[in-house]
Design a protein around this nucleic acid. Structure first.
Lengths: 338, 338
DNA sequence: CTGAAAGCGCTTACAG
DNA sequence: CTGAAAGCGCTTACAG
């Protein structure tokens, strides 16, 4: 199979012009159906492959989208974003686009270095997957390409973002705990770490408010330091009857700690997570949690970015994607007066 | 920041030709240092960005590498390949290349449909990540682009592959079990499923042979069906004192099953895994296993493919990357005469 | 040291 | 319905 067949080669073979071949292969007007068919058959036979670079140059766009994930979200235990990237990559194909993954190193993030794919015009837009620093948000906002922020947002920047409805998910989950008879409910998550953690906290808080349960500051527990590294969770005393954790991984860690201290889950205290990732299923007992709709999030992000490529002026603001509570075995119903 | 600055714009601004600008920006001979510097400064100031598409068209290559992962390896619990892709993507950048992820759907695999990135000349080569069907191997082998197979190989095809030294890893692990006094050792893995599973089995077998331990066919246990879907593992009776599992996930499943049946690990029987993925650390007790050197594997694959792009004739055959035993708590030392 | 010319493969706009 | 011409942004080979 010769490797460098061009439209011209097909044209020469058939004694027509390359313009005609171009039209035929792109199913455009202006070629007789008969000739069109003949060209297509020959192209196939000659092993013709479209040259995307030529099209890119002509049209001034690459049909690639950069998917940027900060390095710290890609650790061994953090396959969530890579998973999302996988869906993005697949869904993008339906639109004739391709994803180029760029792991943003902590160094580049700190030094505000943009991905090389930007400087080489390899991409027509960016999907930023996972919260980056404020300064980096500003930096990337200054770039003249369309971008959407996935799984986080920043209230100060005028950007489009697609996020799980963290607020509502945590709200519903806490409502559920209260329905099950819980009154002393703790929240586990460092409030200033990410917008997700903060919003989930607020959903939890709203549920408390609605049920006239006082927020006890000693029940709001840190799970990571300023750099986002996990820290040992300090159990409050007395122990609440339930814990709302900001994510499944932390819920998993918490359950292990509780067990070490001699408590049984859910008999002695209930624990719920968020994300429905692998930690939810491997915890014993399996966790009641909120499932993030990855496909829907990826889909939204892609629709938005492609729309913005067509029309730079368009703005979408925050798009919320609803999660879904997955009921498992980590919550115990408390009888009244227990 | 105007977005469509070209070399010509810079040239016009400075009253020189675009050839000179090209030379300057590419650090080529034939421009005075003074002018070169002036051009670079102005380019930066004008917000010039290189047009990769133009270069691609000129040189006939895209500077992209397609990373193809069969869909079935990307499930919730299978972040391994996505993880590898992440490293590939990062390492590729050091060579001026980029990775484009393509999830090969089971349908496309069955129908022998090549990734669209091929038909659109979006990539200069392929890294196939995870074993595909024989027919698909043949199909992709017929393609005129360089390719390397990562984490599997096929003895019939003349292809370059980078694999973990599965044979040696399982051999060493089994040796370790025997050193610890084990004699009845089971292997868990369906031998005809992938080359990895098979080679790990052979390493296990070699260790038995060397220690003059008879291979007991009833101790070779299936863990998945012909389609690769996990099946329930049938425990042999009497129970061996140790299990060599073909991967950590299966080891994790096995440990749970053993516990359900009332056995303690490692007191009643020892279990070892392979991969050192998340399952190794979340199993209670944590698993002794073999750590696959992902970075080294990715590195090798990239070196090979880039070498092959430069020189299509070059052949590398099978490249083995050594793993490393990670000792944890799932193996018990058996006293002689126990 | 500097630049005019040609060409990479395609598409668009126009003419016949 | 068909095609000649121009151009996308860059680089190479050559001439001055």
């Amino acid at each position: 199979m010769k490797s460098n067949i061009t439209m011209r080669d097909i044209a020469d073979e058939l004694g027509v012009s390359s313009v005609t071949v171009s039209k035929a292969l792109n199913d455009k007007e202006g070629v007789s159906d008969e000739l069109k068919e003949k060209i297509k058959v020959l192209a196939e036979k000659m092993g013709y492959r479209y040259n995307a670079a030529a099209k890119s140059m002509k049209e001034g766009c690459s049909y690639n989208i950069g998917v940027v994930i900060p390095e710290r979200f890609t650790g061994m235990n953090q396959s969530f974003y890579l998973n999302v990237h996988q869906h993005i990559s697949r869904l993008l194909e339906n639109h004739g686009y391709y994803g180029i993954l760029h792991i943003l190193s902590s160094k580049d993030e700190a030094e505000l270095t943009l991905p090389r794919i930007y400087y080489e015009r390899k991409v027509d837009g960016f999907i930023i997957l996972g919260q980056v620093s404020k300064a980096y948000i500003e930096k990337i906002t200054s770039v003249d390409l369309p971008k959407v922020f996935l799984d986080f947002y920043d209230e100060h920047a005028e950007i489009d973002s697609v996020i799980t409805d963290n607020f509502y998910g945590a709200y519903e989950l806490t409502n559920f705990l209260i329905q099950q008879g819980h009154r002393e409910i703790s929240y586990v998550g460092s409030l200033y770490s990410t917008s997700s953690i903060q919003d989930r906290f607020l959903g939890y808080y709203k549920s408390l408010l609605e049920h006239h349960i006082q927020l006890n500051q000693e029940y709001v527990l840190d799970d990571r330091d300023e750099k986002g590294a996990y820290i040992d969770i300090m159990l409050p005393s007395p122990l609440p009857s339930a814990f709302v954790c900001n994510c499944d991984q932390v819920a998993h860690t918490l359950v292990q700690k509780l067990k070490q201290e001699g408590y049984r889950v859910p008999e002695d205290c209930s624990v719920v997570g968020f994300d429905n990732d692998i930690y939810a299923s491997i915890t014993t007992p399996p966790l009641t949690t909120v499932e993030v709709d990855i496909v829907e999030m990826a889909n939204n992000a892609i629709t938005i970015i492609i729309e913005k490529i067509k029309n730079k002026e368009k703005s979408f603001g925050r798009t919320l994607v609803k999660g879904k509570i997955v009921y498992r075995d980590s919550v115990k119903k408390i009888e009244a007066g227990n």
